[in-house]
């Protein structure tokens, strides 16, 4: 049995190399690109802040009542501090899927995840 290399010509090597380079570059591009999701914060009318989800950072958002603290990490985006009375925005779990929403109604902070919808998402909307 002859090994594959003994059959291969320069042309073969060229074609295979080009294909592998293409695949590896594609993989690097997929890994480097954001998960397809962006975080958009608005005050109900205007967008006041946007960021990609592939980062770790804390943002202080200014609302009519004061500052709402938003944390972005590998779990998604969460509100960890808010001047509103009920703090229900802080219990609204991390938002990471397209369409997920975090809202602080009193402080008028609306955090939404935008982007292409994942096909494996089990539901379109959450009834709560």
């Amino acid at each position: 049995m002859k090994l594959p290399w003994s059959y291969m010509t320069v042309g073969d090597w060229l074609v295979i190399t080009v294909l592998i380079v293409f695949a590896v570059a594609g993989m690097a591009w997929v890994a480097g690109a954001p998960v397809g999701s962006r975080l958009v914060v608005s005050d109900g009318d205007r967008i006041c802040f946007t960021a990609t989800l592939d980062q770790h950072r804390t943002v202080e958002l200014e609302g009519p009542l004061g500052r709402t603290r938003l944390v972005i990490d590998n779990q998604g985006a969460r509100i960890t501090g808010s001047p509103c009375p009920r703090k229900s925005c802080m219990t609204m779990g991390p938002a990471r899927q397209t369409g997920d929403l975090l809202a602080c109604v009193p402080n008028r902070i609306l955090v939404r995840i935008d982007g292409e919808r994942k096909k494996d998402s089990p539901y379109d909307l959450l009834s709560r």
């Binding site: 059959y7 010509t9 320069v10 042309g11 060229l14 295979i16």
Partner: peptide, 11 residues
């Protein structure tokens, strides 16, 4: 003939 079946098949 500059390509063997291996390169053709990979393509």
């Amino acid at each position: 003939p500059r390509m063997s079946p291996i390169g053709i098949s990979a393509a």
